[in-house]
Write a protein that binds this DNA or RNA. Sequence first.
DNA 1: TTTATAAGTGTAGGATATACACTTAGTTTG
DNA 2: CAAACTAAGTGTATATCCTACACTTATAAA
Lengths: 235, 235
Amino acid sequence: MVTNDPLHLSVDCVVFGYNDTGLKVLLINQKETKEDHSSQPMSQLPGDLILLDEGLEEAAERVLFELTQLRGVYLKQFQTFGDPDRVKDLKDRSWLRSVRTQPEQRVVTVGYFGLVSLHEFNPKPASFAGSVQWVDLQKVGPLAFDHNEILSGAMDALQSQLESQHISFELLPKKFTLSQLQGLYEVVLEKKFDKRNFRKNVKKMNHVIPLDEKQQGVMHKPAQLFSFNRDEIES
Amino acid sequence: MVTNDPLHLSVDCVVFGYNDTGLKVLLINQKETKEDHSSQPMSQLPGDLILLDEGLEEAAERVLFELTQLRGVYLKQFQTFGDPDRVKDLKDRSWLRSVRTQPEQRVVTVGYFGLVSLHEFNPKPASFAGSVQWVDLQKVGPLAFDHNEILSGAMDALQSQLESQHISFELLPKKFTLSQLQGLYEVVLEKKFDKRNFRKNVKKMNHVIPLDEKQQGVMHKPAQLFSFNRDEIES
DNA sequence: TTTATAAGTGTAGGATATACACTTAGTTTG
DNA sequence: CAAACTAAGTGTATATCCTACACTTATAAA
């Protein structure tokens, strides 16, 4: 029987990292290919073809680990991108020829966004040295393929889910201050909040619980620490 | 070169139809297969494999038309389902063997939900007689594959988007009464609204515009008719 | 001890959400 | 043609929520 190879399926991960310096996204620097020294190497989102026997989220976890050594990241599917020409741009073809056995094949990709706290133990994707980097969201330039569009879709999803889905704690350290929480909301939702009103609202969320512990080593009044209670979600 | 046929991609459409008798979903009755007369034929969502050179939404439109003769339906992608075993259930295999050239192949499907008004010109998918039917949402039984799960995902998407995305008019006739609009909200969001408060809120939406026209032929005070202004959306 | 820094706190006014019942316009029936 | 039936249409008072706004406090550094 003639097997027609209809199309390929991949996952792409838009991993957001947050710390007090802002919101970042995890990008991979393409290695320069032998055949094309003219164009400077581009950045892209971590992503790859899925295997025949793995689920989509499983594929996203595997690909993210293989490319960045990150593990245990909160991941959520947000959109699937299937324009027939999404990988056909000239700038992308030579890179594809260097890594794919069937570089001309159409690829549909399932987008996942991921959330990581960059506060604690600095999860720098170390093993790949310069090839992986956290890039400030403001400073993201043109990416390979349709990855700017995918990034923008992920940002929309993050914005619309931050409040309703109680996912903010994925971007914060286990113990955090209310100023950190407010800063996160301000960066993600791109608007300022009034400190007192913000704190009034947080008091109503009974999954944000105050700890008997204070910030240390800051040259101002130390803030009380809080943590999230995953069980207490809803209500 | 050995072409490995990695997997197939399909679209499935969850088309919601609304009229004064409630919210329905469009289902297809599988034809009984020659090899298996024991199990009664099941219902399923309209869906099929996508073609090599078409976009995802384009595929959803084509498949929906081919299977139900419906055209020009509002369609929106909501989720992609990729469990490796999602088409491997025993009940589904004989049907797949009767319609697919590679029935054992893994299939990932992109889910679209669609919205149709069942008020005007009764868009009964006539050409396929008994094989296509509008089923009351309450009365949907077990469907083929993971289609109950897909339906439930579509319902979640519809609920969460009805208010924020101004899509209710896709489910209503061009000219509608405020009671119809309220009935729609009540059925989709599964809760009751106060008539006066509901109308106060509608007055604030400046994309709902009153017409100089009344209901006719009803045995009570005729209601004023309204229509949606697609341009006026936002604000 | 002074200074610098961000943490932490309350209130008043405006806007919004909720709860609630009677009158009206048209159709049907006797 | 009068009475009965039905769903449409309408306003207000109360409670709740949102918004705007400025000073005091705890710690580290100088």
